[in-house]
């Protein structure tokens, strides 16, 4: 368990960033982040708890409670909370790999020194965990990418990556909930909607959810 004292810093007057990262991403630290996030929401004056990657942003009313008090409470929660896996939902995401909507597929396979087929099979073999939702509405930061499939982000981000793009950036995997700029590589496309403003619950995925990619086709 990641019980090392986290770094706590001000993010303006009404928020604190609790950073438990020790270099590379750790799944067990992330479980602690989720657990502390849940408990932090019960603290007086706390308005939002936003899990990041091995860190947690806690937003509070600074006129109701001062930052030092919240910082002490969060530090103590970090040390005393039991990290545990969240019993999240399981999702299967059908993916059309390659083609016009998966333009980096061949380059990615070559970077991994694999055939396209092998790279895709390995991408679809893993179970991914939604570590955090953020950046844009419903965007999942997925952990669980096979390290041999990792590929550093593009030097220059694309100004538009389409909604539904199945992407990887460094050691992380993701799916675009909407068309937006991104520096991640595009492997394929899914028709599953991750964000729908008109839905009762606009965001499909939650931290702790598990994801498998299913191959619907592989196009050259």
């Amino acid at each position: 368990m990641a019980t090392e004292t986290p770094r706590i810093s001000l993010a303006g007057l009404g928020a604190l960033l609790v950073d438990g990262a020790q270099g590379t991403f750790s799944d067990s630290t992330q479980e602690l982040v989720w657990a502390v996030a849940n408990t932090a929401l019960t603290l007086e004056g706390v308005r939002e708890a936003v899990p990041g990657m091995n860190n947690l942003l806690v937003v509070f009313d600074p006129l109701a409670v001062d930052p030092q008090t919240i910082a002490e409470q969060l530090k103590s929660l970090w040390g005393s909370t039991d990290a545990h896996a969240v019993a999240g939902a399981h999702h299967t995401i059908p993916v059309s790999y390659g083609g016009e909507r998966g333009e980096d597929l061949a380059g990615w396979a070559a970077h991994c020194c694999m055939s396209v087929d092998e790279a895709v099979q390995r991408h679809a073999a893993a179970t991914y965990t939604v570590a955090a939702i953020g950046a844009m509405p419903g965007f999942p930061y997925l952990s669980g990418l096979d390290p041999q499939l990792a590929w550093a982000r593009r030097g220059t981000p694309r100004l538009k990556v389409a909604e539904g793009a199945v992407i990887i950036g460094g050691p992380q995997a993701g799916i675009m909930p909407m068309t937006a700029p991104s520096g991640w590589h595009i492997l394929g496309h899914t028709d599953i909607k991750l964000f729908d403003v008109n839905a009762q619950s606009p965001v499909l995925l939650r931290p702790g959810d598990k994801i498998r990619f299913a191959i619907s086709e592989i196009r050259a």
């Binding site: 993010a11 303006g12 009404g14 990041g52 990657m53 942003l57 937003v59 950046a135």
Partner: peptide, 8 residues
């Protein structure tokens, strides 16, 4: 090298 984190 920072991991992604919430910002205000």
């Amino acid at each position: 090298e920072l991991l992604s984190h919430g910002i205000v």
